[in-house]
Structures are given as structure tokens and as C-alpha cells.
């Protein structure tokens, strides 16, 4: 029988599995060990005052202190709230607009020039405008995050809908799918790889704008505020602690949200580019 099921998971030999895993961990950790080592050397060599370039143990200590005192979690929670609210807005409206542009010629004609002009403008350039219109604080920063991070989502959803294979559409139509069901059962899943890419880029965009805007919008809490505010008091260790938290949140979102969704959908379906 020449029909063979291709098994995508490589067969792992039982014994070398543990050793293999340690090697993998080491390979991931290695670059950080190198950078950490260099950091320590610079910090202890006294090139910069230690206040401005604290050694890692000092950063770790203040990270710990700020965490147990509840300050860092409070900043983080406020930031995550803004990030997710803004991103949710962008995800919902961005996907709707992008899919609409992909499906309707008229929507494409009207919206594409606007989106094309709006997208390359750095998000921070809109910030003063939003602050003047919507005032200082949460509302305008969430709105701005949503607005700016919608662009990559719009673009990718639009491309994704356009990239849906004609043969899927024809197959579905020949099996009696009307426009509504064609959209739900074929266009949406067919465009999903692109939509997910758009969401990922959108989230990265949301981070970039949020950290900066937290400073401008004069919000009392938030990692962006923490980082910028700490500069006034030369609290470099607090700044670094803030940066570390951003990195951790980013990794967690990537690993436990995006990768989970991807593994359940496009990876399982074999729709990822390899």
C-alpha cells in the first residue's frame, strides 16, 4: 500500500530524551548567560556609576522588593488592563474592517487609501491629538492603543481574505454553501493564518505605544509610568525591573495565548508556512 500517513512528530528515542531536553534548555539559556555575564563585568568595572548601571543582583533585589510591596504588580495590572482593553478594541474592529475590505470591493476602495496613509504614521504622533480630544488618563490611552494597533490587524485580515483559495470557494459553492455560510465556514478559517499574524503584530504595536503613552497621559499607575518616572530619581533598578516585567508579560502572552491558539488551529490544520 503506497498510501502512507506522514507523521509530523518526529519519533523521539526514549533514552536520549532527557539529555536532549537539557541540551535544548541550555541552548535557550546560553545567550542570556553571555549577556548577563557581560552586564556584570560592566557593572562591576565601574565604567558607569553603579546607580546608573546596577549589577543584576541589585535589579533582582529591587524587583523582589517592588513585587512583595505590591507596587510592581499594581503597575503591571494597570498596564495589562490598558493593553488588553486597547488590543481588544483593535482586534474586534481591525478584523471586522479588514475582512470587510477583503470581501467588498467598495469597502476596499474607500478604506484602503485611508488605512494606507494612516498606517505608516508612528503611533506616538497621534498621542497629543488623542490627549487633547479625550483628555488625560485611561480613556484616551486605551483609545490610542486600540487605534494604532488596529492597522496591522486590518492589513493582515484584508490580505488573508484575499488569499483564501478560489478552489475552496468553488468547492463550498458546489456543495450548496450560500454567501453567509461560505463566509463563516470557508472565508474565516481560510483567512485565519493571516488574521493571527495580524493580531500578533497588533499586540506588539500596542505595547510600543502603550509604554510611551502612559507617561504622556499622566496616569498614576502603569509600567510605562514606572519606567519614565524612575528616571527622575535615578532609580535605574526600578526601570530595569519594569522592563523585565514587560518582557515576562510578553513571553506569557506569546506562549500561553498565541501559541496555544495557533497549535489548536493553523498548526493542527497544516496551514503554517514551514
Amino acid at each position: 500500500m503506497q498510501d502512507a500517513v506522514t507523521i509530523s512528530v518526529a519519533e523521539a528515542a526514549g533514552e536520549s530524551r532527557g539529555a536532549e531536553r537539557w541540551r535544548l534548555i541550555w541552548r535557550n539559556v546560553f545567550p542570556f548567560v553571555v549577556v548577563g555575564g557581560l552586564w556584570e563585568i560592566v557593572a562591576w568595572a565601574g565604567i558607569f556609576p553603579q546607580r546608573l548601571f546596577p549589577p543584576l543582583e541589585q535589579v533582582a533585589a529591587s524587583f523582589y522588593q517592588l513585587t512583595v510591596s505590591g507596587i510592581l504588580p499594581h503597575h503591571a495590572i494597570e498596564t495589562i488592563f490598558r493593553l488588553l482593553s486597547g488590543f481588544a478594541l483593535a482586534a474586534v474592529f481591525g478584523t471586522i474592517i479588514g475582512v470587510l475590505m477583503g470581501r467588498s470591493r467598495r469597502a476596499e476602495d474607500i478604506l484602503l487609501p485611508l488605512v494606507s496613509i494612516g498606517a505608516p504614521i508612528p503611533g506616538l504622533a497621534y498621542a497629543p491629538l488623542f490627549l487633547l480630544w479625550f483628555g488625560l488618563g485611561n480613556f484616551s490611552s486605551i483609545l490610542l492603543v486600540g487605534f494604532v494597533s488596529a492597522f496591522p490587524i486590518i492589513f493582515n485580515s484584508w490580505t488573508g481574505v484575499k488569499a483564501v483559495k478560489e478552489i475552496w470557494v468553488r468547492s463550498a459553492q458546489s456543495m450548496g454553501a450560500d454567501d453567509k455560510r461560505l463566509f463563516r465556514y470557508v472565508i474565516l478559517p481560510g483567512a485565519l493564518p493571516y488574521i493571527l499574524t495580524g493580531l500578533r503584530l497588533g499586540l506588539a504595536q500596542a505595547w510600543r505605544i502603550l509604554v510611551a503613552v502612559e507617561m504622556l497621559a499622566a496616569v498614576p499607575w502603569g509600567l510605562g509610568w514606572l519606567i519614565f518616572g524612575a528616571r527622575k530619581f535615578l532609580n535605574t533598578d526600578a526601570m530595569l525591573a519594569g522592563i523585565v516585567v514587560i518582557a515576562i508579560i510578553g513571553i506569557l502572552l506569546e506562549k500561553y495565548v498565541f501559541q496555544k491558539i495557533e497549535n489548536y488551529t493553523v498548526v493542527r490544520w497544516g496551514m503554517t508556512a514551514k
Binding site: 478552489i167 475552496w168 468547492s171 458546489s174 456543495m175 465556514y185 478559517p189 481560510g190 490544520w269 497544516g270
Partner: peptide, 16 residues
């Protein structure tokens, strides 16, 4: 729906 169609392209199946 009185006709069923099979194409040449393997990609006609829905991968999802």
C-alpha cells in the same frame, strides 16, 4: 446540489 465536483488540485479539501 444535483452535481458533485472533484477538481485536480489536492488543495480542494478544507485543511481546517
Amino acid at each position: 446540489m444535483d452535481r458533485g465536483v472533484v477538481f485536480q488540485d489536492f488543495a480542494q479539501l478544507f485543511p481546517w
